[in-house]
Design a protein around this nucleic acid. Structure first.
Lengths: 130, 130
DNA sequence: CTATGTGCAAAGTGTTTGCAAATTT
DNA sequence: AAATTTGCAAACACTTTGCACATAG
């Protein structure tokens, strides 16, 4: 397991993986990140990309997003929500200011650390082309 | 692909799969459903269970829930939210009356069909045992 | 009778792991 | 020098598919 507390050493590969995830708002898959990283480090392996994505998610530098059965990554650290288009399967960021966080009171004993809110529907461009 | 509009015929297997998903609030995995169905139909195959879960989800009789990278199923058709425990990975239903749905105004053009809200944190029993 | 559904085994997809060599501190 | 990280290939877990036979309408 990698989810331990070992001390980390830097590596070109890990830094590049983080750069790539930060370079986009497209919520990339591991495979997309792999191909992007390969453009600059032609020998990286997919395994290394996976290891580093997991490490970065674990240390909180990026977030994992589940969409349509696939794990995707997101380096947007601001609180925001996702709009998932049922037509094109795209994920769009909705910035928090347009959404009032919900009031909630859960049954006794549930300690809430995060609320994740996702909107499902049809995005503007799919809307237009129908 | 199974996501077409063919006319469906009934089958014992499909009915049993639906019964099993309806019989629990535990958000079962396909594999759990498979083992339950096997108790009454010892010859069903895992493929049949998958096919029928997909068919039922497609026709809206059950919902898919993604949790911790795994696809799970839920036959609770009432609006409700999920609490996902970061310690035990359990999924708990939070019934809607304790949560006031959020106000939101999305950018022009986004047509919202559903809002999914998930709470992440520590569940009461993990809380107690720490 | 015809189309749909099933069981099985094989293939597919996305992700993780074991290991020796390379790299970082 | 000691520990971590890498690339590779093999293993993995979960899901889907091809096909011949069975079943529903």
């Amino acid at each position: 397991m990698l989810s331990d507390t070992r001390q980390r050493k830097r590596s070109k590969q890990r830094e590049k993986v983080l750069d790539v995830v930060r370079s986009t708002k497209s919520h990339p898959t591991a495979d997309w990140v792999f191909h992007e990283v390969r453009k600059e480090l032609p020998n990286v392996s997919l395994a290394t990309v996976y290891r580093n994505l997991n490490l970065l998610a674990e240390s909180g530098k990026i977030n994992e997003v589940l969409c349509d059965g696939q794990l995707r990554f997101d380096a947007n650290r601001d609180e925001h929500f996702h709009f998932i288009c049922r037509s094109c399967k795209g994920i769009f960021d909705i910035d928090e200011t347009r959404v009032t966080s919900p009031d909630f009171k859960l049954p006794r004993g549930y300690v809430v650390q995060d609320v994740r809110m996702d909107f499902y529907g049809i995005c503007p461009s799919c809307q237009a082309s129908q």
